[in-house]
Amino acid sequence: MDLNVVLERLQVFVTIFLGIFIEAVPFLLAGSVVAGLIEIFLGRETLHRIVPHQPILAALAGTSMGMVFPVCECGVVPVTRRLYGKGLALPVGIAFLMAAPVINPVVMLSTYAAFGWSPILVGRIAFTFVIAFSIGLIFQLARRDEVLLPTTEHPEDAMDEPPAVSSGEHPTIRQRLPSALRVAGDDFLDMTRYLVIGCLLAAAMQTLIPQSTLTAIGQGPVTSVIVMLALAFVLSVCSTVDAFVALAFVGTFTPASILAFLVFGPMVDIKSTAMFLGVFQRRKVAYLVLLPFVMALFLGVFLNFNVGVLR
């Protein structure tokens, strides 16, 4: 290959890399600011009090927390991490992590804008709920210290004596806000490393594996679902807008595979997987990728065979 071709390829790679990064960064920043506010303004006891302890209720609470914290799959990671630092129960956080990128007002609205009042919209919310709930329950069986990284459990900077709290008087918002921002900055920088790795991988996959190869493979009831799941993973599109991206595949792929794309993509993609590595033990990240994958695959294939065209 001559130098020009290499350079042009590199430019395509950099453009896609920056595209994903620039698009994701506002959401990650917003998530980090929420995480910072949680760290400074939400007490352990309050959290302990308001989150249910009975396993099923806890997982249910996790799946619906996105309505309170409207975050996409980038923003949800720092928020979950901070909530774990505050002692949030393991299954609640997992269910939140899996569900919040879809079950929140912003994403519901964008899905509605793209698909209208259709089975895709209802199915997306319903199946995300079911899958996130199940994975939350599965993690009920795991031990906290086997799943979370030590730094998630005890974020060091939380102990960095918050300036005003120790000083006796009740801290004012003006005193606490800078601390919240500093925590937000720390969380952002921490997560950005993973975001960059994720963006690099996603851009590399896109430049190396032509999309046409993927789309050429899959029309069958099984392969179409696998291809759409692979696309969801590789494209790493933000969940707030992935409905519009999915729209472009409506004619080419079976509706059930599109539904699988919309359910799986927000839970797991290259960049969020990279970010999970900053929160969970490496082996448990594999579960967090594989469980939703298998469930979404089952869902898509089942619908393809049993319901056929849902439009």
């Binding site: 601390s179 919240a180 921002l181």
Partner: peptide
Amino acid sequence: IGFFLVAAGYLFE
């Protein structure tokens, strides 16, 4: 704009 604000948090601290 958010980046500047968050950076300001570090300065204050």
